[in-house]
Amino acid sequence: MGGMSRRSTQPRRAASGSAAPCPCGLPAPYRDCCGRLHRGEAAAPTAELLMRSRFSAFSVGDAGYLLRTWHPSTRPPAVDLDRALRWTGLEILEVTGGSAFHTEGTVRFRARYTERGRAGEMEEHSRFTRHAGAWVYVGAL
């Protein structure tokens, strides 16, 4: 999800309270779902879960996590997050590879957002690979 960033911000932790639903859409509180990954307590076991955790990182404003989970060969020097953009939903459209048994995978998704009160969506087909044993985002196909 490289194209989702815009301007620098600090993480918006108010939306990521301990019992708040996880922005990624899975039926678990943020603290037990993507929050564990963002805090470094666990690593995403699949490319899809890494993609979901990156969407959540955009939602809560965690630029550090986005950079840590970006492949070094395509990682930008910084991630700028747009405070006017609010990520509101995620739909996984297609997954290829990316399991615990693969070294590469792709995830095609649709992300919904609101920007200054106007609804929008973006679609991306993302490529993931393992780097130093962990799933990382490479870029859009």
Rank of each mutant, 00 (worst) to 15 (best):
A78T: 13
A100K: 13
G25E: 11
W87H: 14
R116L: 11
A132M: 05
S99R: 13
G17S: 15
C22S: 13
P72T: 09
A100R: 14
F58I: 04
Y137F: 14
A111G: 15
L141T: 12
M4A: 13
E91G: 08
P11W: 08
R86H: 11
R39V: 01
A140F: 00
F55Y: 15
H102T: 08
R118A: 13
S18T: 09
E91M: 10
R31N: 10
T106H: 13
F101W: 00
L85F: 03
G120R: 11
P27M: 07
R86S: 13
L26G: 00
T96G: 13
G3V: 06
H71N: 07
L141D: 15
G35I: 03
A111M: 10
P45L: 11
G17C: 09
P76I: 08
G98D: 08
T74K: 11
A44I: 02
G105L: 02
G17K: 09
G2L: 09
V95H: 04
R13C: 04
L66F: 06
G64W: 01
T96R: 15
A47P: 09
V107P: 05
S18N: 12
L66R: 00
D80E: 14
F58E: 02
G17W: 10
S126C: 12
Y137V: 00
F58S: 02
A100T: 13
G117K: 05
R130K: 15
A28S: 11
P23R: 03
L90D: 02
R52F: 08
G89S: 14
S16L: 01
Y137D: 04
I92W: 05
A140W: 00
R39M: 10
R108M: 08
A43T: 13
V60E: 07
A84T: 14
T114F: 04
P21Y: 03
R118Y: 02
S56R: 02
A132V: 00
R36P: 01
T129I: 09
G105V: 01
L50E: 08
Y65E: 01
D62I: 01
P21K: 05
A43N: 10
T114Y: 02
Y113R: 09
D80N: 13
F58C: 14
E124I: 06
G139A: 08
G89K: 07
S53E: 02
T114R: 15
S5A: 15
P45K: 12
S8K: 07
D62K: 02
A132N: 12
P23N: 02
H38Q: 14
R52I: 06
R36E: 15
R6C: 10
D32W: 07
S59H: 08
V136H: 00
V60M: 09
A43R: 03
P76V: 09
G25I: 01
T106M: 11
C34D: 12
S126P: 01
T46V: 08
G117L: 06
T69G: 06
D62Y: 06
M51T: 07
T46Q: 10
G3F: 07
T88W: 05
A28N: 06
R7P: 00
R127H: 14
D80V: 07
L81Y: 00
T46W: 06
G133R: 03
M122K: 13
G25Q: 06
